[in-house]
Amino acid sequence: MGPSDCPGPTNPGIPLDERWIESVRVNLPAVQRRAATLGTKRTVKKQWQAAWMLRAVTCIDLTTLAGDDTQANVQRLCLKAAKPIRSDILAAMDMEQAQLTCGAVCVYPSRVPDAVAALKRFKAPHVPVAAVATGFPSGLYSLETRLREITLAIEAGAHEIDIVLNRQLVLNHRWAELYREVQQMKAACGPKIHMKTILAIGELGSMNNVYKASLVCMMAGADFIKTSTGKEALNANLPVGVVMCRAVRDYFERTGYFVGFKPAGGIRTGKDACTWLILIKEELDDRWLNNKLFRIGASGLLLDLERQLFHYVTGRYAAAHELAMS
């Protein structure tokens, strides 16, 4: 079972199983210990490190989610996603033919048309455009408008929708309502559009809530579960990654359905990215080591990966200005 055996998300959802949710137990100190030792128990060096970093590049949802996003910077982002690593660096590793791209670009709904157009222009229409939706980042809008946003984003050309959870329903353990909302969002996405559910783990109060919310989303048919919007005080960290991966594994073991995982926010270095890949390899398995089931929501990470690869190829450290910005 390797990364090439990855089927992508296969999750049709299941009926809400509240007993399963109630049985969840997460021991935070033990999770923290596991997270802290992942990076000390495993490491990759030399060409392994280079290959893993390239894999990380392909898993990035290259993201811009700022109030001042315009066509100019979205276009730049798209070009970088289409050609993430300088071609001479790739050539030195004999990886030019692989035509690597990032996993997707991720933008606000109103920037979707810019992104779609730019990718087309750069001859990379196969790079998916993901739009955040459903009242991103807080989710505190009427269900009606939240659902409508999904439809509009898809009509604008989005291939993937990153929805945000209604945190109130998690904090008050209103699992049935949460399940119904996510189910309706999935219905709005339809069968062809991948839906990622953002838990906003920084606002869920406990790891037990993180695990339970992960389960509810998967039961409601999520294709991916995603840690954060990038706007909360706490975003993707390894302990949360451990917990969400375990939820994904648990769900897979019980139902046989693959669900993807996307940490977002705070992953900035090549070393971090490798540790996240290690987490996936250890807590899930190689079938998840692929952008069909694993994405990293990031913006600055790509540049650090490119710098590390530059170093692998040349033996020298690159200055940031020598590599194309996104």
Partner: peptide, 18 residues
Amino acid sequence: TNPSVSDIFNTMEYGPAP
């Protein structure tokens, strides 16, 4: 063996870390 970057990219195996 001494696998290439491309091989490892596909297998995602660990390598030696002496």
